[in-house]
């Protein structure tokens, strides 16, 4: 029982990373842009978040301001990555896959490089990260262990996902955004500013994903920069498909992914090799979902129709 409670608690905890990434990526994909640079953007967000948290912490600010500055910095760094991606794929109309992969290389490089530099200078983020996570009180009842033992950014992830889901499905702007992703030429003819929608969603999506990177480094790894985020980023891209491009479903999908991600670490009595095999589950399930949705071919579950295609008004 205690193990199960702890596993669910961890599922929600780690799921939040995927949730940030997938909510951000969903916004971007809904505008017709497949951003394979998400892992890189999350790395950039991680750099920004750690810097913000460190500065605020060194300045002796209170917990609220430390968290806020970290979030703002993470959004700024991630958003800059998104802006770069947008500049290349929207204005310069470059191939989205190629630009995204480059951004991933670049972002992971920046995080790794910066991490080594910080390590050389002896700067650690563990003290600042204390503002982000709380140790789980194992004497508390199961409800508060599972739902109330998280840092603030877990709840922020869920809140953002809900807001984005409402925005996407119940507002006029959200409808316009979906139209841009399905058929930009028709949206353009209907008077929707396609380019503006694409830019806003690329930058906003990247900014949200950026918080995910910061959250992972400051909360999940408790300030250690040893870990790479790019695996998390790819899982976030997978989660978008798993959740059928719906941030609402994404919340539960994220917790399932979090559960599966932590499964190899929680299971005892299984050899190391089989644990490696368990790590395949999120990817395999996502591949299966992709195949199943293409098999049923229902319009509601398909990727945005113009996903991956550059939009140039003068093309026929």
């Amino acid at each position: 029982m205690t193990i199960l409670v702890s596993m669910i608690q961890q599922a929600i905890h780690f799921g939040a990373v995927f949730l940030y990434g997938s909510t951000g990526e969903t916004i971007v994909e809904k505008s017709g842009h497949l951003n394979l640079g998400m892992p890189g953007i999350m790395c950039l967000g991680g750099v920004g978040g750690c810097l913000g948290a460190y500065w605020a912490f060194q300045g002796g600010w209170s917990t609220f301001w430390v968290v806020l500055l970290a979030v703002i910095m993470a959004m700024a760094f991630g958003g800059l990555g998104g802006l770069l991606y947008g500049l290349f794929t929207i204005t310069l109309r470059c191939n989205q896959n190629v630009t995204g992969l480059t951004l991933t290389t670049f972002g992971a490089g920046v995080l790794g490089f910066w991490g080594t530099q910080m390590g050389d200078k002896g700067i650690t983020f563990a003290p600042a990260s204390r503002m982000f996570w709380t140790p789980v009180d194992s004497t508390a009842n199961w409800f508060s262990q599972i739902f109330l033992s998280h840092g603030p950014l877990v709840y922020l992830a869920i809140a953002i996902a809900i807001v984005v889901a409402v925005y996407m499905n119940h507002t006029r702007k959200g409808l316009a955004l979906r139209a841009v992703g399905e058929n930009p030429a028709a949206a353009d003819a209907a008077g929707i500013n396609v380019i503006a929608h694409k830019y806003v969603s690329c930058v906003l999506g990247a900014a949200i994903a950026g918080i995910g990177g910061a959250f992972y480094l400051l909360d999940c790894t408790q300030g250690s920069l040893e870990y790479v985020i790019d695996a998390m980023g790819w899982l976030a891209v997978a989660l978008v498909i798993f959740s059928l491009w719906r941030p609402g479903i994404g919340i539960f999908g994220a917790f399932i992914f979090g559960f599966l991600y932590r499964l190899p670490y929680n299971i005892t009595g299984v050899a190391l090799a089989e644990k490696e095999l368990l790590k395949v589950i999120p990817y395999a399930v996502t591949a299966l979902v992709l195949i199943i949705i293409s098999f049923f071919n229902k319009r509601e579950t398909q990727p945005p129709a113009a996903l991956g295609l550059p939009y140039f008004r003068e093309d026929r």
Binding site: A273, K275, E276, V280, A284, T286, L290, I291, S294, N297
Partner: peptide
């Protein structure tokens, strides 16, 4: 079924990686 190949091949990369890691640990724990 016209499955989206970009996303599916992306997933297959990681499945391959996991299989590789499984084999390495299996061959030499």
């Amino acid at each position: 079924w016209n499955t989206n190949e970009t996303l599916l091949t992306l997933m297959f990369n990681y499945i391959a990686g996991c299989l590789g890691a499984f084999f390495v640990k299996k061959a030499d724990p």
